[in-house]
Amino acid sequence: METKKPGLVYTLKVVRVSDLGYVLDLEDGKEVLLHRSEAKSKHEEGNMVEVFLYQDHEGRLAATETIPKVRLDSLAWLEVAGVNRKLGVFLHIGIKKDILLSKDDLPESWDEWPHLGDRVYSGMKLDKKGRIFADLATEEEMVEQAEAATEEMFNQQTSGYVYKMNEAGVLLFTESGHIGFIHNDELKVKPRLGQKLGARVAFVREDGRMNLSMRARKEIAYSEDSERIYQYLRENKGQMPLTDKSSPEEIKETFQMSKAAFKRALGKLLKEEKIIQEDGKTYLQI
Rank of each mutant, 00 (worst) to 15 (best):
Ile220Lys: 15
Ile220Arg: 13
Ile220Asp: 14
Ala221Gln: 13
Ala221Val: 00
Ala221Gly: 05
Ala221Pro: 05
Tyr222His: 08
Tyr222Asn: 08
Ser223Gln: 14
Ser223His: 13
Glu224Ile: 11
Glu224Ala: 11
Glu224Phe: 12
Glu224Gln: 14
Asp225Trp: 06
Ser226Pro: 06
Ser226Glu: 01
Glu227Ile: 09
Glu227Leu: 14
Glu227Asp: 13
Glu227Met: 14
Arg228Trp: 03
Ile229Met: 00
Ile229Asp: 00
Tyr230Cys: 03
Tyr230Asp: 08
Tyr230Pro: 00
Tyr230Val: 05
Gln231Trp: 02
Tyr232Ser: 01
Tyr232Lys: 01
Tyr232His: 15
Tyr232Ile: 01
Tyr232Cys: 02
Leu233Met: 08
Leu233Cys: 10
Arg234Phe: 02
Glu235Gly: 06
Asn236Leu: 07
Asn236Ile: 02
Asn236Trp: 08
Asn236Lys: 09
Lys237Val: 07
Gly238Glu: 10
Gln239Leu: 11
Gln239Phe: 03
Met240Gly: 04
Met240Phe: 12
Pro241Asn: 07
Pro241Asp: 12
Pro241Lys: 09
Pro241Cys: 05
Pro241His: 03
Leu242Ala: 08
Thr243Tyr: 04
Thr243His: 05
Thr243Asn: 02
Thr243Leu: 01
Asp244Ala: 12
Asp244Cys: 09
Asp244Pro: 01
Asp244Arg: 09
Lys245Val: 05
Lys245Thr: 10
Lys245Ile: 04
Lys245Gln: 10
Ser246Gly: 07
Pro248Ala: 13
Pro248Lys: 12
Pro248Asp: 09
Glu249Ala: 08
Glu249Gln: 10
Glu249Pro: 03
Glu249Asn: 10
Glu249His: 06
Glu249Val: 09
Glu249Lys: 10
Glu250Pro: 06
Glu250Ala: 15
Ile251Phe: 00
Lys252Val: 01
Lys252Leu: 11
Lys252Ala: 10
Lys252Thr: 03
Glu253Ala: 15
Glu253Arg: 15
Thr254Asn: 03
Thr254Met: 08
Thr254Leu: 07
Thr254Val: 11
Thr254Cys: 02
Phe255Gly: 06
Phe255Asn: 04
Phe255Ile: 07
Phe255Trp: 10
Gln256Cys: 09
Met257Val: 12
Met257His: 05
Ser258Gln: 08
Ser258Lys: 06
Ser258Asp: 05
Ser258Trp: 05
